Simulated scan of single mutants.
Amino acid sequence: MDFTAQTAIVTGADSGIGRATAVALAADGLDVGITWHTDEEGAEATASEVREHGRKAFVARLDTTDVPGCGDVVDELAGRLGGLDVFVNNAGTGDNAPFLDLTLDQWRHTVATDLEGAFVCLQRAARHMVQAGRGGRLIAVTSVHEHQPRVGSSAYDAAKHGLGGLVKTIALELGSHGITVNAVAPGEIATPMTGQTDEDPHEKHRPGVPLGRPGDAREIASVIAFLASPAASYVTGASWVVDGGMLQMGPQAGSHLESDAWREG
């Protein structure tokens, strides 16, 4: 319980879950490194919110398909922060093509972004933590599709399954250094990635989600902030599903149901 983070990097923090996470960590007293891929203006807006909490914010562009060069961005931000206690691998992409139609280039782009780039960045972050000798927190944002597949998302599903497995393995290897490693697996969240920018999820009806709506990015960020806190000192190698109960629907179809008839048995 004696680990108290002072610095963090959140990738893909120009919007959505990444932005909410950066702000949540700043509210908990951390200085934050923020990365963006295509939306520099969004990243600067996130940085402004971090600074409103009285914390330092540094911004850098990160392309996780630049393997292994993306790790240099982690090094740069860690240097500007003066250390690295928490690393949140949030940057990612998706695909939507049937397996028989998926091209090799599409496959490679998704896997490079969601798995290979994540490996490089997590490894580089871990090396900073090990060298500093103070412990640390590695947190990877995966997806409910780390646990269950979705038709038309073969590359995405494979990458997220792989990232979940990577988290478990490095949790075993880094425990002796006082570093915890966990995944957070969101369901449908109202973010730009799901085409719901700046929309209130409480105003959307999702019959196939037990809580009846999509999630808010801040609801994911609160779980990540917990995992970064001293209170989560004995939590490692776990995947925290934050999906309003959707995975528990199993064959009842989850978010794709169009009526509430299932609630009546």
Score class of each variant (00 low, 15 high):
residue 217 A to E: 08
residue 128 H to L: 06
residue 163 L to K: 02
residue 205 H to I: 10
residue 36 W to C: 05
residue 2 D to P: 00
residue 75 D to F: 03
residue 17 I to M: 14
residue 206 R to F: 15
residue 171 A to H: 07
residue 237 G to R: 07
residue 189 I to Y: 03
residue 58 F to D: 01
residue 168 K to A: 12
residue 78 A to Q: 00
residue 170 I to H: 04
residue 190 A to H: 06
residue 108 R to E: 14
residue 31 D to R: 01
residue 149 P to C: 05
residue 263 R to N: 06
residue 29 G to C: 05
residue 67 V to H: 08
residue 216 D to C: 10
residue 150 R to M: 12
residue 100 L to S: 14
residue 185 A to M: 08
residue 50 V to S: 10
residue 261 A to H: 08
residue 106 Q to G: 15
residue 66 D to R: 12
residue 214 P to L: 04
residue 97 A to S: 15
residue 163 L to D: 00
residue 30 L to V: 09
residue 189 I to T: 15
residue 79 G to H: 06
residue 23 V to N: 03
residue 216 D to W: 11
residue 257 L to Y: 05
residue 140 A to N: 09
residue 1 M to P: 00
residue 76 E to H: 07
residue 198 D to T: 08
residue 32 V to P: 10
residue 238 A to C: 13
residue 74 V to H: 05
residue 43 A to R: 12
residue 137 R to G: 00
residue 93 T to H: 04
residue 42 G to R: 15
residue 149 P to M: 09
residue 237 G to N: 07
residue 185 A to Q: 10
residue 76 E to V: 07
residue 44 E to G: 05
residue 249 M to I: 05
residue 81 L to T: 02
residue 97 A to C: 15
residue 236 T to K: 01
residue 69 G to F: 10
residue 166 L to V: 07
residue 103 T to M: 07
residue 98 P to L: 14
residue 99 F to C: 13
residue 68 P to H: 07
residue 180 T to Y: 04
residue 211 L to I: 14
residue 160 K to S: 11
residue 42 G to A: 13
residue 237 G to P: 09
residue 34 I to Y: 02
residue 112 A to K: 06
residue 28 D to R: 14
residue 57 A to W: 02
residue 170 I to N: 09
residue 140 A to D: 06
residue 173 E to K: 12
residue 81 L to Y: 04
residue 213 R to W: 09
residue 82 G to P: 03
residue 220 I to A: 06
residue 128 H to C: 06
residue 248 Q to G: 15
residue 174 L to S: 01
residue 131 Q to H: 12
residue 132 A to I: 11
residue 36 W to K: 07
residue 152 G to W: 09
residue 37 H to R: 13
residue 15 S to V: 13
residue 172 L to E: 09
residue 231 A to P: 00
residue 49 E to P: 07
residue 179 I to W: 00
residue 222 S to E: 14
residue 136 G to M: 10
residue 29 G to R: 02
residue 131 Q to W: 07
residue 73 V to T: 13
residue 122 L to E: 04
residue 7 T to Y: 03
residue 142 T to D: 06
residue 65 T to Q: 13
residue 212 G to W: 03
residue 146 E to I: 01
residue 80 R to Y: 00
residue 186 P to V: 12
residue 252 Q to H: 12
residue 228 A to E: 02
residue 258 E to K: 15
residue 31 D to E: 11
residue 73 V to H: 05
residue 217 A to F: 08
residue 29 G to T: 05
residue 78 A to I: 02
residue 249 M to Y: 10
residue 142 T to Q: 04
residue 24 A to V: 11
residue 85 D to M: 00
residue 84 L to Q: 01
residue 102 L to R: 11
residue 217 A to Q: 07
residue 21 T to P: 12
residue 125 A to P: 04
residue 68 P to S: 08
residue 104 L to A: 14
residue 140 A to E: 06
residue 114 D to Y: 08
residue 248 Q to H: 14
residue 98 P to D: 12
residue 226 F to Q: 03
residue 13 A to W: 00
residue 64 T to P: 14
residue 2 D to A: 09
residue 95 D to A: 09
residue 21 T to G: 08
residue 120 V to K: 01
residue 164 G to R: 05
residue 213 R to Q: 12
residue 3 F to S: 01
residue 121 C to L: 03
residue 221 A to H: 12
residue 12 G to W: 13
residue 255 S to M: 13
residue 153 S to C: 10
residue 214 P to I: 02
